[in-house]
C-alpha cells in the first residue's frame, strides 16, 4: 500500500516538477546512448554465431519456421542478459540459450518429440555393422544421414550437431547441453550407435 502510494506520488511529482521531468529526459538520453553502445558490442560479439544458432535450432526443431522464431527469441533473450556475459565463449553462451529456447518450444508444442522417436519398426538387429563403404558409396549419402539424424531423439540430434558440425569439445558440449562432462562421450557413443542402427535397418530394407 505504502509502496503504491510512493509510486503514485513519485509519478505525480515527476509530471508536475519541470526539474524532475528535465532530469528524466537527460537520463533517458543517457540510457538511449548506453543502450546503443550495448547493442553494438552485443552484435559484434554474438551476431557472428548466427549460423551456429540457426543450425542447432533447425536440428532440434526440424522445421525452418520454428527454428527462425526460436533463434530470434534466443537473440532477444541473449541481449537482455548480455550484461551477465563477461566475455569468453560467445558461441557456447549463445548456443546454451538457443538450446533452452528450443526445448521450451519442443516441450510446449510437441511433448512427444522429447521421447525417443526412434522408429522401432525400421530399427533392425542392433549389432548389424553397416559397411562404411556402403554408406559412403551412396550418392544420396547426405540425404540418408539427414533422414537418420532426424529420426533420433532431440538429445542425440543436438549432440551430433554440436560435435560434428560445430566441432565443439566435450567440455563445451557439456556446458551447452547442461550435462556432466563425463556423460558427453557416452551420449555421443549412443547417438552414433543409434544412427548406425537406423542406417543399417534402412539399407537392409531396401535390399
Amino acid at each position: 500500500m505504502a509502496l503504491q502510494l510512493k509510486e503514485e506520488h513519485a509519478c505525480e511529482s515527476a509530471d508536475s516538477d519541470p526539474k524532475i521531468v528535465k532530469f528524466a529526459i537527460v537520463k533517458k538520453r543517457q540510457e538511449d546512448h548506453s543502450l546503443e553502445v550495448g547493442l553494438a558490442s552485443f552484435e559484434d560479439a554474438i551476431l557472428p554465431h548466427l549460423d551456429a544458432a540457426h543450425n542447432l535450432a533447425r536440428w532440434l526443431l526440424r522445421n525452418e519456421q520454428d527454428a527462425q522464431d526460436v533463434v530470434q527469441e534466443a537473440y532477444l533473450r541473449a541481449f537482455k542478459s548480455f550484461a551477465g556475459f563477461h566475455g569468453g565463449n560467445g558461441r557456447a553462451w549463445l548456443l546454451t540459450i538457443v538450446r533452452n529456447t528450443s526445448y521450451t518450444l519442443l516441450k510446449k508444442n510437441r511433448a512427444v518429440d522429447l521421447t525417443t522417436t526412434f522408429d522401432e519398426e525400421i530399427h533392425g538387429s542392433g549389432d548389424e555393422v553397416v559397411s562404411p563403404v556402403t554408406i559412403l558409396e551412396r550418392s544420396d549419402n547426405a540425404e540418408l544421414i539427414k533422414e537418420a539424424m532426424d529420426h533420433l531423439p532431440a538429445e542425440f540430434r543436438e549432440i551430433l550437431a554440436l560435435r560434428h558440425q560445430e566441432g565443439l569439445s566435450y567440455k563445451e558440449i557439456a556446458e551447452i547441453a547442461q550435462i556432466p562432462p563425463g556423460t558427453v562421450m557416452s551420449r555421443l557413443a549412443r547417438a552414433r550407435t543409434k544412427l548406425r542402427e537406423y542406417l543399417a535397418a534402412r539399407m537392409g530394407k531396401e535390399k
Partner: peptide, 18 residues
C-alpha cells in the same frame, strides 16, 4: 567402421546456415 560413420555424419549432415 566407427571412424567412417563419424566422417559420414560430419561430411553428410547438412549444415543449416541462417
Amino acid at each position: 567402421a566407427h571412424g567412417s560413420l563419424v566422417r559420414a555424419i560430419r561430411d553428410g549432415a547438412p549444415y543449416y546456415k541462417a
